[in-house]
Design a protein around this nucleic acid. Structure first.
Lengths: 134, 134
DNA sequence: CTATTGTTCACCCATTTAGTGTACTTTAGG
DNA sequence: CCTAAAGTACACTAAATGGGTGAACAATAG
């Protein structure tokens, strides 16, 4: 029921980038140092943010990262799902194979959890990084 | 971000008990068989529901389990927290030691997640087993 | 060409998850 | 009071996940 460490780091990294002047390229080392994220681990996480279209990267001398969108266009849900994949409050909500009842059609638990999950996703989607810049 | 298998089983077990005539004692074998929960694993999960005051147990011949409260008095949150302990969307929300910034006082990520977590808990608390009996 | 920056893929160790084994305790009924 | 039928406690395990590290590579500014 908790996000993992990589996601926590990713949220902090995105917020850090969101606080930089628009278009500014920030190197991994700066993010790592300021946000206290192990450098090598950060470098491993960033590509998933890039694939999700949240961040752009620049290689070579003077390279680094920058947001690919306006901070207000990036939600917590975007970042969480970029790193962890689709949210599933219960594994069976995304893949019936995980249900020992094999997705018995009238599983009330399933339906109630699906409802909670929808609310959770909406809530995560409702938070973006523009709000947090200060 | 997902509940674990034990919690899923616990929710199904509680729902099963909620559907029995009030006061009826149901043996583990029946729950296990009907809800397709590995017997030994179910027996291991039940004590946490008992400690949380959700279920009562009866030992010896003719023993089994029964709800300790009315179905409407048992929320999803009760069951989830009975099995998994307090919900923490981020580990640092319950224990600052897990924050690599050591709970830097103005962590905006922390604050936003705390807000989402509060909504999630409220949502889980809003679902009880009376609604699901049919 | 070279130093600097990010990328990729493989690996590693500790913890958690999802269970099983074995021995024990309680209790109804004969 | 014996015994079979229930739940309890504690230890153990195989597999997956979490949180990282290592080493070689690729791109790019100067």
């Amino acid at each position: 029921m908790t996000i993992n460490q990589a996601t926590d780091y990713a949220l902090r990294a995105v917020l850090y980038l969101a606080r930089q002047p628009q278009g500014e390229v920030t190197e991994a080392q700066a993010i790592s140092g300021q946000e206290v994220i192990p450098m090598r681990f950060l470098l491993k996480i960033m590509p998933s943010l890039i694939k999700a279209g949240i961040v752009k990267s620049f290689r070579g001398v003077g390279g680094g990262y920058a947001l690919a969108k306006a901070p207000g266009e990036v939600s917590f849900l975007d970042v969480v799902e970029a790193v962890e994949g689709p949210i599933a409050l219960n594994r069976c909500l995304n893949d019936y194979a995980f249900c020992s009842k094999k997705g018995a059609p009238n599983c009330q638990i399933h339906q109630a959890l699906a409802d909670v999950q929808a609310k959770l996703k909406a809530e995560l989607q409702g938070h973006n990084f523009a709000e947090l810049i200060n």
